[in-house]
Nucleic acid binder design. Structure first.
Length: 229
DNA sequence: GCGACAG
DNA sequence: ATCTTGTCGC
């Protein structure tokens, strides 16, 4: 990845943060731009993105899952360099630059699902919201655990879910994607309704995480290992 | 002050 | 997250 975001069309409108302090202001502005609204069309693709990290390089895996055929139709990997260390609440600083570069040229009617949070974030704007707002794409956050908020345990059956509350707002859903397995945290990233996000994640799941995310993760790791980290 | 804390 | 294959249990 070269100088973060330099070549993207959103340069100018959004100055990429260069400190933790700037990152906080950046997220607050992203949060104000997030729209929680119905998708403008019936989605055809659920595109999963995940990044695997080696010693010096990182690899973003992307998997386009055809919702009708219930299978991954295309996948690719984009190499880069992780510019920031991980810090809870600022995961986007580490992951977003490479993810943004990897999501070029998606087909129409694509919804992107990211391995992290959207509105279920202390500032109500996690990685999925950053990517959604900057690329003006519908995005969903899907994470393995809560960063903030509270929820009651959903029922044991696959598909059941309960709302997640944070500062008196409903910021996400705790979703049982597989019977008897720990629920995942689903939240709106941008341009979609929580209900639709929950439905898409549930529909695309066989195991705990939705298929496009599993495939993106598997592919990114595979390529990373074949490239020697 | 201490613990918790997406990946 | 990552080091790491098979194995134990429902």
């Amino acid at each position: 990845m070269s100088k973060e975001g330099e070549h993207h069309h959103w340069r100018g409108r959004w100055a990429w943060p260069h400190s933790w302090e700037e990152a906080e202001g950046f997220l607050k502005r992203i949060a104000m731009e997030v729209r929680e609204e119905p998708l403008p069309w019936a989605p055809h693709w659920l595109v999963g993105v995940d990044v695997a990290y080696g010693v010096t390089r990182a690899f973003a895996g992307v998997a386009a899952y055809d919702l009708e055929k219930a299978s991954v139709a295309a996948s690719w990997v984009v190499p880069g360099v992780p510019p920031w260390p991980y810090r809870p609440g600022f995961f986007f600083l580490r992951e977003a630059p490479l993810v943004l570069a990897a999501l070029k040229g998606l087909p129409k009617r694509s919804v992107v699902v990211l391995h992290g949070h959207g509105r279920a974030h202390p500032l109500r704007a996690g990685l999925a919201s950053v990517v959604g707002v900057l690329l003006e794409l519908p995005t969903i956050g899907c994470a393995g655990s809560l960063l903030c908020g509270e929820a009651t345990e959903p029922g044991a059956a696959a598909g059941s879910w309960s709302p997640i509350w944070w500062e008196k707002r409903r910021v996400g859903a705790w979703v049982r994607t597989k019977a008897g397995v720990k629920p995942v945290v689903v939240s709106v990233g941008h341009g979609i309704r929580l209900q639709e996000a929950v439905h898409l994640v549930s529909t695309a799941s066989v195991y705990r995480l939705p298929q496009p995310l599993r495939e993106a993760d598997r592919l990114a790791r595979q390529v990373m290992r074949s490239c020697g980290g």
